[in-house]
């Protein structure tokens, strides 16, 4: 398990941090952009530290969601890493790095709109009259 590339670790931990499945995250088409943004905005040693901690949480949890969440709260929301972690989550949810919108596409792929059962204003429009009804819900298996 520890043979993961940093990008794989990034994706896996993002699943636990965002509450979205791997395919949900991949479906935004933003993985490469976000991974690169994350790495480029940090000092190299911080990147290394962060992924070391992430891998440790993932490797020592025996795939228990509960244990991973505990690790996240303790380590990734710990005072040293909390700002990186919240930036990472914010990136998936809004397409922003800090106050800056990463790209036009990142804005339209923000997961916060999905969480709100809405859509990013100005993109992914739901069609004439859709707002008169509750949002569409398609049952999952």
């Amino acid at each position: 398990m520890s043979k993961k590339t940093p990008k794989e670790s990034f994706l896996t931990i993002s699943v636990y941090l965002t509450g979205y499945s791997q395919v949900d995250l991949l479906g935004t088409g933003m993985l490469d952009t976000y991974y690169n943004t994350f790495v480029e905005n940090l000092e190299i040693e911080n990147v290394t530290t962060y992924f070391k901690e992430v891998d440790q949480i993932l490797d020592n949890s025996g795939n228990s969601e509960e244990k991973i969440n505990e690790g996240i709260t303790k380590v990734l929301f710990g005072s040293a890493l909390v700002s990186l972690t919240t930036n990472l989550i914010t990136m998936w949810y809004t397409g922003n790095w800090g106050q800056d919108v990463i790209s036009p596409e990142s804005y339209t792929q923000g997961l916060i709109w999905n969480a709100a059962q809405a859509h990013p204003p100005g993109a992914k429009q739901p069609g004439y009259g859709s707002w008169a009804d509750e949002p569409i819900e398609i049952p999952t298996i």
Binding site: N69, F77, I112
Partner: peptide, 11 residues
């Protein structure tokens, strides 16, 4: 807040 709890809270 993070993960599923965050998602549910925002919803």
């Amino acid at each position: 807040m993070f993960g599923k709890k965050l998602r549910a809270h925002l919803n």
